[in-house]
Design a protein around this nucleic acid. Sequence first.
DNA 1: AAGTGGTCTAGACCACTAC
DNA 2: TAGTGGTCTAGACCACTTT
Lengths: 249, 249
Amino acid sequence: MSSSELPSRRLAAALRDSINSGALAQGMKLPSERSLSDEHGVARNTAREAVRLLTEEGLVVAIHGKGVFVREKYRLARSPERLTRAARAAEKGAFLGDAETNQFTPTVEVEVRVEEADAETAVILGIDEGNEVLVRERVMSADGHPIQLATSRLPRTLTEGTAIEQADTGPGGSYARLEEAGHVLGHFSETVGARMPTPEEASLLQLTAGTPIIVVRRVAFDREGVVVEVNDMRLSGDRYELAYEFPAD
Amino acid sequence: MSSSELPSRRLAAALRDSINSGALAQGMKLPSERSLSDEHGVARNTAREAVRLLTEEGLVVAIHGKGVFVREKYRLARSPERLTRAARAAEKGAFLGDAETNQFTPTVEVEVRVEEADAETAVILGIDEGNEVLVRERVMSADGHPIQLATSRLPRTLTEGTAIEQADTGPGGSYARLEEAGHVLGHFSETVGARMPTPEEASLLQLTAGTPIIVVRRVAFDREGVVVEVNDMRLSGDRYELAYEFPAD
DNA sequence: AAGTGGTCTAGACCACTAC
DNA sequence: TAGTGGTCTAGACCACTTT
């Protein structure tokens, strides 16, 4: 389309057009930076700048020592019914339900600890600052690729003596244990945003440059409207897609 | 925290720590690239590289001729009740409802045209490829800042002769017109993802580097389960947050 | 060993902002 | 005019991958 005036932009636009037109298909290797700089009569750093622009757009991925490749698109659908009681009765937690509907092999690393509630957490959970909170940090992977980080916080008063304080919460997951303890779930509220990952998140999720993360905060309420859990999730933007369904009135 | 071995990474880590610790608060100006390079004994390009890393993380924003500033966080909440019939009866469309709950002044630019359905659109709308589709492209702004792009597609058979084919669809918006024409809405389905913007999207939404977009595809069904509209929305990632609510069973 | 991307240098000039 | 970020050059060396 539009070829800007600057050499780096012109080169980037040319490469972008080749990709969008299909001349450079997914997975194909771009010319090396040195050959781009030769053929277009610019310094190598200028060719590099052009490639960097495409990298930031998420159009290409550079692999050290190998080359720059047109990015392949992934996507995992996510079921909107992932949190139903029926699914929990079938002994599946939310992530395991995802795995089943999308046919990947799930693995989860868990770290459990007890913290004192900071101001924000206290407000959300409706407890006092400094009260004990059970924190479950998880790294979830699909076929060995980490695709989701999740940090759940629950008032310690709800979890003491239950399997929620164990790494393995048992069939149906934390929500099933909460219901057994008398805290029947009523509804969930989710807020969804997007941002660039911190270096730590990028490394944990093995994200390449130009990949944002989807940030979801899910709040679980029991039937009395009391908050029982806050779950902060960070999802790999190129692998995940959320699905929601709601009535017209 | 961790200071990598490379000069650019070390500088970036130092600046990142200053920001996270609050020593460099939101809106504050970083030292100029030239003074960073002097003080840390690196070439200007190396200092620049450090700043670029922070820019890609969305931590800072560079303004030509002025300096580099710690990014300020925006956020617009979005009501989960934005699509209820009650809201439409109150003569508000979805975006106007957002405006009211979040107290900004909304403006919308609209472009309406008729297209022939491509393969993907045909499948979603349940019509034949090549059939006429009404396309409404909108740029929505809050207080003059563009924050959302939306492209709606409806089967032409549903819109011919209605105000949906006008730039101004009237009170309650397209959905109200559809219901008047006998297509009572049943439910909505939304899929949510995130990616980096194309240069065109970045320019339309006035996005700075390091800002992803939230991509939402909403499909509207009538009470018989027939698809009446597909709406592809692209939201500025640093200004928007979606809210969803759903029952536990 | 050859090829590729990653980082760094030292310097130049341009474009924008402020005074 | 001075200060700032934006782009470009020409070259060097490093780190990783492939043959």
